[in-house]
Amino acid sequence: MADTTTSAPAEPLLVLDGVTAGYGAGLILRGVGLTVAAGEVTCLIGPNGSGKSTTLKTISGLLKPASGTVTFKGEDISRLSARERLLRGIVHVPQDRSLFPAMTVRENVEMGGYVLRNRRLVAERWERIAAAYPLVADRANAHAGSLSGGEQKTVEIARTLMLDPVLILLDEPSIGLDPRSRTTVFRSVADLAASGRSVLLVEQNARSGLAVSHSGAVLEGGRVALTGTGAGLLTDPEVGRLYLGAADRPSTPLASSVPSRSGDHDPQD
Rank of each mutant, 00 (worst) to 15 (best):
T4V: 14
T6I: 12
L14K: 02
L14C: 05
L16G: 00
D17W: 12
A21D: 08
G22C: 06
I28R: 00
G33W: 00
L34K: 02
T35R: 10
T35M: 00
V36K: 04
A37M: 11
C43F: 03
I45A: 03
G49T: 07
S53V: 03
T54R: 11
G61Y: 00
G61C: 06
L63K: 05
K64S: 13
S67R: 15
G74W: 12
E75T: 14
R79A: 13
R83Y: 08
E84T: 07
L86I: 07
R88W: 06
G89E: 01
I90M: 14
V91S: 03
P94M: 07
L99D: 06
A102G: 09
E110R: 15
G112E: 01
Y114N: 00
R117H: 13
V122T: 09
V122H: 07
V122S: 10
A123Q: 14
E124F: 12
E124G: 05
R125Y: 06
W126V: 05
R128G: 03
I129Q: 12
A130C: 09
A130F: 13
A131H: 06
A131Q: 09
A132S: 15
L135F: 03
V136Q: 05
R139Q: 12
A140W: 07
A140E: 08
A140D: 01
A144C: 10
L147N: 09
E151M: 11
Q152C: 14
E156L: 05
L161P: 01
M162C: 08
L169K: 06
L170S: 04
P173H: 05
G176V: 10
G176R: 11
P179K: 14
S181R: 06
S181K: 05
T184A: 15
V185G: 12
R187N: 12
S188H: 13
A190K: 10
A190H: 13
S195L: 07
G196R: 08
S198P: 03
V199K: 06
V199R: 09
L201G: 04
L201I: 04
V202H: 08
A206C: 12
G209S: 11
H214R: 09
G216W: 06
G216E: 03
V218N: 10
V218E: 07
E220P: 04
L226R: 14
L226A: 02
G240R: 15
Y243M: 01
G245H: 05
R249L: 14
L254Y: 04
S257T: 11
S257A: 13
S260R: 08
S262R: 00
